Amino acid sequence: MDLRIFTEPQQGASYDTLLTVARATEDLGFDAFFRSDHYLAMGSADGLPGPTDAWITLAGLARETSRIRLGTLMTAGTFRLPGVLAIQVAQVDQMSGGRIELGLGAGWFEEEHKAYGIPFPKEKFARLEEQLAIVTGLWATETGKTFSHEGAHYRLTDSPALPKPVNGKVPVLIGGHGATRTPRLAARYADEFNIPFASIEDSERQFGRVRAAAEAVGRPADDLVYSNALVVCVGKDDAEVARRAAAIGREVDELKTNGLAGSPAEVVEKIGRYAATGSSRIYLQVLDLDDLDHLELISAQVQSQLG
């Protein structure tokens, strides 16, 4: 089971804070550092000192880390034109030496679009499908040849399809709870399918849909990686779990139900139940980015027990 650290910087984090967490992620042996792609804080958070851009952040981290993989859960399809996104991701991948992964979603948080003057189209899923076709198509185009796309939302004419990622492509993550269209897109374009904040039962059901969709298009179901994203709150004892839950404004019982919370033994046991659904990777949503002791505990007493 791979454990990856997943951050939500829109809730309040500077680049320096993210760099500190990314370096701890690397030093403590976690597999990857991922971040959300949002420009507006959610809930009661004030968001200070203000948002950081996902791909500018990852470009910086690409030069200041050496081992961990880096990526987004999920880049908002509404924020960037697909041709520009393909260039950005390929460049950051080159800057990292081939350690980048692209999670791409439709975009959903209308208020942040209003706050920063970003168009919020009514039909986002059809745009996402075109974006996936364009980004992957640009990377797959043989050097020296051109790529064109004539779609309902985007048109590209004789693109040189440059630059290329280090290994020819970047792993693409698609995720969500949709029962039909999301599995179909994953079967066609994804290297990994991620389900965020889902129960063990819902994860098993959704993974089954994606497996069936892959097989329907002639792709082996095991060709994809299946993963979860879950909030994490681990403590050496009940008091430490309660302290960490209070620091992120959550209740312990709720976290135990909907995330990975409790003692290291409790969390390891629950991860095992997710593994039984076919999940081989978990993105640990860390909400208190100043609590590096939390990461050390997870590394020493949770990660160390996982195969």
Rank of each mutant, 00 (worst) to 15 (best):
G249Y: 11
D253L: 08
I248P: 02
E269T: 15
D237F: 01
A245M: 01
L260M: 10
R244F: 08
D237R: 01
N258S: 11
R244E: 04
R250M: 14
A246N: 03
A239S: 06
V267D: 05
A239T: 06
K236A: 15
V241C: 05
K256T: 07
A261C: 15
A245L: 01
R250H: 11
S263P: 08
D238G: 10
E254H: 10
I248T: 12
V241I: 12
E251S: 09
A245Y: 01
G259D: 05
A239Y: 00
L260A: 09
D238E: 14
G259Y: 00
V267M: 11
E254N: 13
A261S: 13
V232E: 05
L230R: 07
G235E: 02
E266Y: 11
E266C: 09
E254G: 11
R244A: 04
D237K: 03
A246H: 00
R243I: 06
D238I: 03
V234G: 12
E240W: 04
L255Q: 00
E240K: 14
N258H: 13
G249I: 06
G262A: 05
A239D: 09
D253C: 00
E254F: 14
L230D: 06
I248C: 00
R244L: 10
V252I: 10
L230K: 07
R250E: 14
N258W: 14
D237N: 13
E251I: 00
L255E: 01
A246E: 11
V231T: 14
L230Q: 10
